[in-house]
Design a protein around this nucleic acid. Structure first.
Lengths: 165, 165
DNA sequence: CTTGGAATGTCAACAAGCCTGACTTATTTT
DNA sequence: AAAATAAGTCAGGCTTGTTGACATTCCAAG
């Protein structure tokens, strides 16, 4: 297709525009993780622990398998993280009532406290960016992010929002 | 401030909305890196090599220090990556003419070929998302990403676009 | 002109985090 | 009883990041 056919409306799909978008994601992601990373420095934990805490807080009672698919890591990798969180009393693992093979994960008060500090730092950052960009930009932001996800990741993303505004 | 004061216009700043945005970034970033990761699997390199190749391609003749600030890693970490790329003949390091302490980085034809494959895969993914979301959404996407960057990162980001559309 | 500080880049050793593969235990389903 | 599922473990390896020590080069103050 020629330039005259596509017109100006598709100029946002040029290689240069896409390259700028890619770099924007890269730099923004650095800013995105900076705030919780600062909180983590004062603890013995890393990003992997943060992610686990976030999603357990998001859906209390979550099974280990669910967490595995969400995080997209291997069982061994998650298990090391989970073990330390359980040993340190931040997460509680309860045997399933219906199916005793399953373990359901909950935050202890200590775990909830740390998760709250991490989440608060990240939300603060996010809120500042949202406020600066405005509601319409945020709507577009969300649209592109959703389009960027794998279909499977998108399904997981949507499923976490059930019953929430 | 009360709900009646702020009205509906600030509902996008609620904790729940911010949390969803945070999760969207998380899942989208997985999709964002998936395409080049597939290309990398066929090579002996990792994401760190991809990032270095990307920015060297972006600004040929770039100094090592510049690359350090862009990537936000220690010079030792970058050096290992750079050393293998140079040894394998993907990157060329030339001593600075004015200042002989400096090393200027260039892609060899082989390096440019790999960079092109990586970049092409990622742009394809990005283009699909952009096309699906539309130009207005993309504009908002870029606005929020820029607001999410650290001021320093934002300066770096802008400086890479000098002379480009 | 020289000397000391600053900047640039390199090397060595080590830690964090994630991966694969093989295996165990307990439980549920067929 | 056999197969499948959920969770957890052990061993070993790779990538990416870290800190600390060091060589080279440049520049500016004495």
């Amino acid at each position: 297709m020629s330039d005259t056919q596509v017109g100006d409306s598709l100029l946002f799909l040029t290689d240069e525009q896409l390259r700028q978008g890619i770099e924007a994601v890269f730099f923004a992601y650095q800013g995105f993780t900076a705030a919780p990373d600062l909180v983590l420095e004062g603890t013995q934990y890393g990003r992997a622990h943060h992610r686990a805490l976030h999603f357990i807080a998001r859906a209390e009672g979550m099974k280990v398998t669910r967490l595995l698919t969400i995080l997209g890591v291997t069982k061994q990798s998650l298990n090391r993280v989970l073990r330390t969180l359980i040993e340190d009393g931040l997460v509680e693992s309860r045997v399933g009532r219906a199916d005793k093979r399953e373990r359901h994960l909950f935050l202890t008060p200590e775990g909830a406290a740390l998760e709250s500090r991490l989440s608060g730092a990240q939300r603060k950052r996010m809120r500042a960016a949202y406020r600066q960009a405005g509601p319409e930009a945020v709507a577009g932001f969300r649209q592109v992010l959703e389009a960027l996800m794998d279909p499977e990741q998108h399904r997981t993303y949507m499923s976490l929002r059930e019953g929430k505004s």
